[in-house]
Write a protein that binds this DNA or RNA. Structure first.
Lengths: 214, 214
DNA sequence: AATAAAACCAACCAGTTAGTTTGATTTGTG
DNA sequence: CACAAATCAAACTAACTGGTTGGTTTTATT
């Protein structure tokens, strides 16, 4: 495959990510992807067997991306346990804001088929194993709840970040608050961290949620 | 409209709820809805202007349902504050398990358009106002965090329940746990409640998450 | 029994869409 | 330059799908 062909294939994939994440598998149009990529429709079928294969590649592409970005967590050590919740929550919140294609495709995927769940697992395994060790060390030091497993802990953090974006429209309406506003997001992050942090002295809680410089 | 017609319209709506919640607006097929309702396709257009109107009715129907079921919270009083988190979390977890059409349609709606957000707001306003009063009274008694608003509190509970179901496939895979198993669900509920409850004595946390008879 | 609403049957229409084909043109490389 | 890979243009097919139509049958009501 020549360099030019590689680039064309790449442009198709990028356009497909946008189209599929916006409208899902059934709503997406192959002709739109071709137009958006500035490419002849025929080229799509030159590089991808059919619409479904293209969709699979899109999922694989975007699921790999979150795995790659999570790699920075490998730099964390046991000493980072006290502010690990904040680091993780901010990472996911910002990631979802920066790459809305991810949470959208994840949502579509869970609604429409769920055939690509294994991809997500594969790209995250290593980092999660690393984080689990830090968490368990933190548990022994009393930073994290003894009865709350690492899985549940990470589940809650993921749930907060995902739900904040995946239900932004309905939430903004229901609570009469504009969740798209960064200031609002900052407030929610602080409050969530306050709720998830163990406070040894329940009376004084001013120290928390002041943010950690990164 | 005769009684028979009312029933036919009802059967169409029920079939439409199933079809739309399974496949979303674009994936759903009018012919399938007709077949599932055991009704002639023509009847659909006798009672609903078009596919989009039918979809709106479906959303309205299912959004009203959650509002109706939340009405039992009106029986709660300030004395229930200590176990309010448990009552709410269990309610939403069980509701999502019993009526998967709700979280699915909510997810579709947020992905596909978001035009019906106001419906959800309208049906929940009254109950939420009631719960807010209990929450704020609880805050004054130290049961809930002083810095965490009622909105954020309810947001987290909703996020946990929604995410647990909306991402069940990917989560089960990633964490190597079968979230469809009721025992697993029970464990997650307990751990989440442990994480969300204020513990005055961080060392002893056995007392919590033993469940509250309802 | 008469009437009208409700429902059925089945063909049909028009627009859409994934995927193909044919043939011409451009571009990079030996 | 010569050749092959890459791309374009545009028409085409076959299946699908939302919605309609015309004529017939069933069912409830008076």
């Amino acid at each position: 495959m020549q360099q030019r062909a590689v680039e064309t294939r790449g442009r198709i994939l990028e356009a497909a990510v946008r189209e599929f994440s916006e409208k899902g598998f059934h709503g997406a149009r192959v002709d739109v992807i071709a137009a958006e990529a500035g490419v002849n429709k025929q080229r799509i079928y030159a590089y991808f067997a059919n619409k479904e294969t293209l969709f699979s590649e899109v999922i694989r592409h975007i699921f790999t991306l979150i795995g790659d970005e999570e790699a920075i967590f490998l730099d964390l050590g046991e000493g980072d346990a006290p502010h690990m919740s904040e680091i993780l929550l901010r990472h996911y919140m910002f990631f979802h804001a920066r790459v809305p294609e991810f949470w959208r495709l994840l949502a579509w995927e869970n609604l429409e088929s769920g055939r690509h769940a294994h991809v997500l697992k594969d790209v995250r395994e290593t980092v999660f194993a690393h984080l689990r060790r830090i968490y368990q060390a933190g548990q022994r030091r009393g930073i994290f709840h003894g009865q709350v497993s690492f899985e549940t802990y990470l589940f809650i953090l993921s749930a907060i970040a995902f739900f904040y974006y995946a239900n932004q429209r309905t939430l903004s309406h229901t609570f009469n608050r504009d969740l798209a506003d960064p200031a609002m997001r900052e407030q929610v992050i602080r409050e969530c961290l306050a709720l998830l942090t163990i406070h040894n002295h329940p009376a004084s809680t001013e120290a928390i949620s002041q943010g950690v410089s990164r």
